[in-house]
Design a protein around this nucleic acid. Structure first.
Lengths: 268, 268
DNA sequence: TTGCTCCTCACGTCACGTGAGGTGGC
DNA sequence: TTGCTCCTCACGTCACGTGAGGTGGC
């Protein structure tokens, strides 16, 4: 009594393309109800439409096939919702990043670059609490945000005394290869650890420093100006970069007043 | 006097990865100022940073490399802005589509499907003004919007008398292969043509018809219900589908009241 | 019988990323 | 001299799309 549909018919019922249906079969995401042994013809049932509709929507939102499969086979409704929610959230931060790049592009096309005002500084050894992880460049913003949230939580709950601005450490490979282990840290008088927050003594190092004013999506401009200046006036050193987040008002809607000290490693 | 930078140094200055810089060189998007003949070492100049910054931003917005190249080599500032603006606009409609799919997913997960109320109808030959073009499925919404804008413009300027609801014709391959020549048309008493708007006599055809209530992103649900019903009660016919846009209030923010007649070709 | 649908490979797409294997400069 | 940076292939990624070449059902 359950009618069977050929792949073409099921495509018209589900609005998934025939090629997509075959692909989903190949990778085991969505299997036909029956496959004819001799001809290989796929047959689908009307009851499979509800799954097909979910798949079509999740794929339209660019959820990776592996995650779609997880959603379809999740043991509980709660886990299903959690997986979908996580994807929607990652889409949100992607959208936020896009908005910032658009603004950054506009500013680049309309406002001339301010020349870098470069100073030279040896930053002494610093006791701190830190979060350290391998991160892809594209995820930097959301990773840093979460890392500092965790750091402030520990600083607050343990009553630690902050002794300097929050900062980050970025190996050269983070820029040249787009992925590396980076560090977010906050200098403190007495260190502590909790969860992924650990103690870290940041070693003394010498830098050429320029202050970047504006959103983080424009940081490359300051790197360009500073690095060019360094090439002409200092001896560059193979060591991680450092960024000190001097002024990042909590009202993060307007990033135009953000001040960041970009620290380029040089020979002391 | 113009300092030269190795690819790694230029990567740190521009925040483009070394791999990306090599790739841009390979495809001719962005060439080093010099290439050492014997070692193949690439050398870049500080003056190339401004182009690199544009490239980085446009690529971060997923503009295809070919278009980025066009922007960089556009003869005039106006053409540059036009190409960028066109890309931002396509990102906007992409975002709109995403929002609709998210809403559609939510409704699918929370609201049960209403059973289809199917009728049987022979639609007589209809004189109309039409726009016809090969379209990819993903571009449907914005294409239809533009097509009807053009149609209403012609109807208005020529003072044509509308004799039925706006409608569309979609070959089966548009669904099963994701791309086909589709038609948007408006029935009129006397036809006319202008620009890409042409006259079209839509031939008589017999359909099983169901009324879809709600946004277009949920149309697949009605196709599934209608098609299942047709399989059990009619003889499906190989012919294009038709959609009659009965009620699509101009205030397009709330699509929940949209009414669309989905017409499934059957043997008369 | 014709034409339509379906099948299975194998390869293409797009913008790089990932090694492998090797060379050059300080 | 060591280790770092650079080089060039060749192949992988991801989710299908594009044919080619062939078969099956009405």
């Amino acid at each position: 009594m359950t009618a069977l549909f050929s792949i073409g018919e099921f495509s018209r019922l589900s609005h998934l393309t025939v090629k997509a249906l075959r692909h989903y079969h190949d990778v085991g995401l969505f299997e036909p109800a029956e496959v004819d042994a001799s001809s290989g013809y796929r047959q689908y049932e009307a009851t499979q439409l509800s799954q097909a509709r979910i798949i079509r929507r999740l794929r339209a939102l660019d959820m990776p096939i592996e995650q779609v499969q997880y959603v379809l086979t999740a043991p509980s409704e709660a886990e299903k919702q959690l997986a979908i929610g996580a994807h929607l959230k990652s889409m949100e931060s992607e959208l936020q990043r896009t908005r910032e790049v658009v603004a950054s592009l506009r500013s680049l096309l309309t406002e001339p670059l301010q020349p870098a005002d470069v100073t030279y500084r040896t930053i002494p050894e610093t006791r701190s609490v830190a979060v350290r992880e391998r991160v892809e460049r594209i995820d930097t913003a959301s990773w840093i945000q979460q890392a500092f949230a965790d750091l402030w939580a520990v600083i607050g709950s343990k009553g630690l005394e902050q002794t300097g601005p929050p900062a980050g450490i970025f190996p050269s490979a983070f820029i040249t290869e787009g992925e590396a282990e980076i560090v977010a840290f906050v200098p403190v008088a007495t260190a502590a650890h909790s969860g992924r927050v650990s103690e870290l003594v940041v070693p003394e190092a010498t830098f050429a420093v320029a202050t970047h004013t504006g959103p983080f999506s424009n940081l490359d401009c300051s790197y360009g100006l500073l690095g060019t200046y360094v090439a002409e006036n200092f001896v560059s050193r193979t060591a991680p970069f450092r960024e000190d987040y001097i002024d990042t008002p909590a009202d993060s809607e307007d990033q135009s007043a953000f001040r960041t000290e970009v620290c380029w490693p040089v020979v002391g």
